[in-house]
């Protein structure tokens, strides 16, 4: 595609400009203005627009599931290399189906867009928010130790409980259930398995009454007072313990 210039105007793998422009138009994207002054720049701007389209969810503007998994895989790799953990938060809107059934899909779409807007406003610049399913969202929290991830995810989740959305004369009050996990450089894992773990935490939140964030605290390696007392109970005759 890049070879399409003044010297070779009709290469074999040429970009179908008409179709590309139609795709962008249908997606509601801004159409690059074609002046004919510089074919390279114009084609590049169309390619850029198509690339941008290919990684984003058309409805919410968040990144899509394909790109999300690529980012998550990169962060898992980074964790293995540097040891710095990465948090993964999965958010699912509670009772979303009944909203669709009661108010229609257009209202459902507005809800999804509102959730996406809240996510964008509440996350850090380095985080990546994605729509990974119908009403399921995820946020990648790079360089977060468990304590940092819990803090960040709690702050994000607080934006959804409740999420108030005015729809005409009606005011919807929604909640969301969320699950949080983090990478562990001692336990290599792929992005799909990590999302599955986060889903498990999210389902636990649903089972526990919804509208909450669930995560499993990492096991503490600190020796408790009970362990200490139990250890020191040993009496060895003639050794330091028995003296």
């Amino acid at each position: 595609m890049r070879e399409m210039n003044k010297q070779s105007p009709e290469p074999k793998n040429s970009l179908d400009l008409t179709m590309a422009l139609r795709v962008l138009q249908n997606a509601g994207r801004q159409i690059p203005q074609l002046t004919g002054n510089d074919a390279d720049i114009e084609v590049q701007s169309i390619i850029d627009a198509l690339c941008d389209l290919s990684i984003h969810d058309g409805l919410t503007g968040l990144v899509n599931a394909t790109f999300f998994h690529a980012v998550l895989a990169r962060e898992i790799e980074r964790n293995l290399r540097t040891g710095r953990a990465c948090g993964l938060m999965v958010i699912d809107i509670d009772h979303f189906k009944s909203i669709n059934d009661t108010y229609g899909h257009n209202t459902g779409d507005v809800v999804l867009q509102s959730v996406a807007a809240r996510m964008k406003n509440s996350m850090r610049r380095m985080d990546t928010a994605a729509r990974i399913g119908g009403e399921e969202f995820a946020i990648i929290l790079p360089e977060c130790d468990p304590a940092d991830a819990i803090h960040a995810a709690s702050r994000i989740h607080s934006m959804f409980n409740p999420l108030v959305i005015p729809i005409g004369q009606t005011i919807l009050q929604l909640t969301a259930s969320a699950g949080l996990v983090w990478t562990n450089s001692n336990m290599p894992i792929n992005s799909i398995a990590l999302v599955s773990m986060a889903d498990q935490e999210m389902y636990r939140a649903k089972r526990s009454g919804r509208a909450r964030l669930c995560y499993t605290q990492p096991e503490s390696t600190v020796i408790s007072q009970t362990e200490r007392s139990a250890l020191m109970a040993l009496k060895l005759e003639g050794n330091a313990h028995g003296r």
């Binding site: 562990n184 001692n186 336990m187 096991e219 390696t221 020796i223 362990e227 200490r228 250890l231 020191m232 040993l234 060895l236 050794n239 330091a240 313990h241």
Partner: peptide, 22 residues
């Protein structure tokens, strides 16, 4: 060694290797 400090440190080492390194 039978010293309490050694016992404590050995247990702490086991705990870390068990929980963090499986």
């Amino acid at each position: 060694t039978p010293e309490p400090t050694s016992l404590m440190d050995a247990y702490a080492t086991i705990k870390i290797l068990h929980q963090q390194y499986k």
